[in-house]
Amino acid sequence: MSDYLKDPQIHREIIMDHYQHPRNHHLSDDKTYHKAHMASESCIDDLTVMMKIDKGLISDVCFDGVGCTISTASTSILTDLIKGKTLEEAKSIINSYYAMIDLKELNEDLLQEAVAFQNVGKQANRIKCATIGFKAIEQMIKEEETHD
């Protein structure tokens, strides 16, 4: 973990970058993709996340929709993090992210740029925004596992 990821200024820049230039920001027409539509009841985020799983490996992941800075940037970072990972690896990234949001522990090696959200948990009203994409991936992994 490099020191630069500890700087709040860097956290802000990471989020700005992912909000203004979200990665994997499109949807797929491929019917073999898993799809999760996340429309939170309490806020106005409305995101669709899609994921292709090949033999336990996440070969592609993408998203689109309407979202605030926090939900858009966190989902964008997440897609970067889990692309090419196994389902088990993705699950440990997601669990590690939740632990960070709960202000419990910070696994910088697993979370990479997602450490930018290490203090979001202090703002209870933004936790939903910061986890919306993670819930979507979690839901699709569960779907894949029960299907198998």
Partner: peptide, 11 residues
């Protein structure tokens, strides 16, 4: 500014 908005959520 967008920066201020983000700071409110991540600080």
């Amino acid at each position: 500014t967008l920066e201020q908005c983000i700071d409110l959520s991540i600080m």
